[in-house]
Nucleic acid binder design. Structure first.
Lengths: 257, 257
DNA sequence: CAATTATTGTCTTTAAATTAGACAATAAAT
DNA sequence: ATTTATTGTCTAATTTAAAGACAATAATTG
């Protein structure tokens, strides 16, 4: 929900949120992105922590420019907030409860960071804009966690991967948004060959199986799993991967594009 | 996209679109509803035709009040535009291209109906509001076609069921919206037991099968279909239905709620 | 009113797909 | 050379799905 800030100057006035009138955003419409990654047999979500007193975490979000497709906006928001580009992105749900607004979040933020409360005309306008009820379009993104070095921006204190099961309390309804994203992810996992977006360029069959076992939280039979995946006919087999272990070396595979 | 008009007085000024400032809608956000029904082995869509010169068809749409959940808005829009209430409604996609606006439609409308062009301040404001780019949330609705008598409202010339394959050219991107709704309908047809929303209170197994065959556009084996549906365990068998035909009477079934 | 007809409900058989079991291949350690 | 742990693949068993068969039955026919 917080926008990318184009102002790197932290010494003056610290506008935590870009000025909507300058940016020419669509009113009361936001985009929130749930970024999934996979590492060490755990499904992760990339969550920035805001650079303010008090602990504020929220999935990367932003607003839609007047002359911008919503899908483009989602990509832009993701890149601006995390440095990630050219990734798999999919719209999954619209969150549109009447009571859905930033008020509670902003109240606590301003209470713990009273220095932010500079109510000149510009800031007041910005503040009012943000206090309205917002309808948010949820997107989920899938990235190869090894290929990406998340770039935090000015308004963020840090940006980290959290196990999806061990997320901190997020602002607004972002915990619910992540939940719903996970459901959508599972629902179209096989059909859309989503798995291979979460894996590195090359991988072993065991890697794929462990990913599946993580996502669906249940063990799978190795022999039959291998057959199922190979029968999809979307992988090409590369050379063997010598792991140094005292056993047969597994083959590496790559996703055919 | 056109709103329900609260003004039944057709003699004066004919505001085709309600005044957004009065209604306190969210700017640039709309809801469009694709209403599916089933009759005579054909999947139908309910489409109002606007009461103006020139042929304008569009699925029922409207806007979201400031203090209204988007799901509630969808229900309200449907009821106001068609009289239909308490039905199965599901959000399926957001249409958010930057170029998505009413301009082309409004231009043609005003060209063919120049008497609508009354540019006092109020109307101008309304006109400007509508010329902006709109993001539209798509919902599809499922109704028992026999249980519903569509009520057209003032701005509509008529409201009729069209075979989904034989729709007229609709305004804006509404043909695309219907297409996408149909895909979504098929995708979750089995999982969400959607079929029984399209059928009357009681029905024979043949009715169900014909519905499935229509939706998926392919023949199904009667023996195995019956088994599959009964194995779902969501139907209760009622008395027999004597059709007057020279053969065994089929049982009637009802969906268990 | 027995025979006929068209359709329904259900059972059996067959085929296909899924799951489980078995084992050889192999890379390093002993 | 033997052992160990894991991989790749085959076969067997089980389950599920598709196809085939037939009795039940509500009106019609002669």
């Amino acid at each position: 929900m917080l926008t990318e800030s184009p102002i790197p100057d932290k010494n003056v006035s610290t506008p935590i949120l870009t000025n909507p009138s300058e940016q020419n955003y669509i009113d009361q419409l936001s985009i929130d992105c749930v970024i999934f990654g996979y590492h060490n047999k755990a499904l992760k979500v990339l969550v920035p922590k805001l650079n303010f007193k008090g602990d504020f975490w929220g999935v990367p979000g932003g607003f839609v420019h007047q002359h911008e497709d919503i899908d483009d906006a989602a990509h832009r928001i993701l890149q601006t907030r995390t440095g990630i580009k050219e990734i798999y992105l999919e719209q999954f749900h619209v969150f549109g409860n009447a009571a859905r607004n930033n008020l509670k979040f902003m109240k606590r933020l301003l209470k713990l960071n009273p220095e932010l409360l500079i109510m000149d005309e510009e800031h007041k306008k910005e503040y009012m804009w943000l206090t309205k009820r917002f309808v948010s379009i949820g997107y989920y993104a899938l990235v190869d966690i090894n290929k990406v070095i998340p770039q935090k921006i000015d308004i963020d204190e840090s940006i980290d991967w959290y196990n999806v099961q061990e997320l901190p309390e997020l602002i607004i309804d972002h915990n619910e948004i992540v939940e719903k994203a996970l459901s959508a992810l599972r629902a179209s996992f096989d059909e859309k060959l989503i798995a291979f977006n979460l894996l590195p360029e090359t991988f072993t069959m065991k890697d794929v199986q462990e990913l599946y076992e993580t996502i669906f939280d249940k063990p799978l039979a190795r022999n039959n799993f291998q057959k199922k995946i190979l029968d999809m006919n979307v992988l090409e087999r590369l050379e063997k991967k010598f792991t140094g272990a005292a056993n047969k070396a597994p083959y590496l595979y790559r996703f055919k594009r």
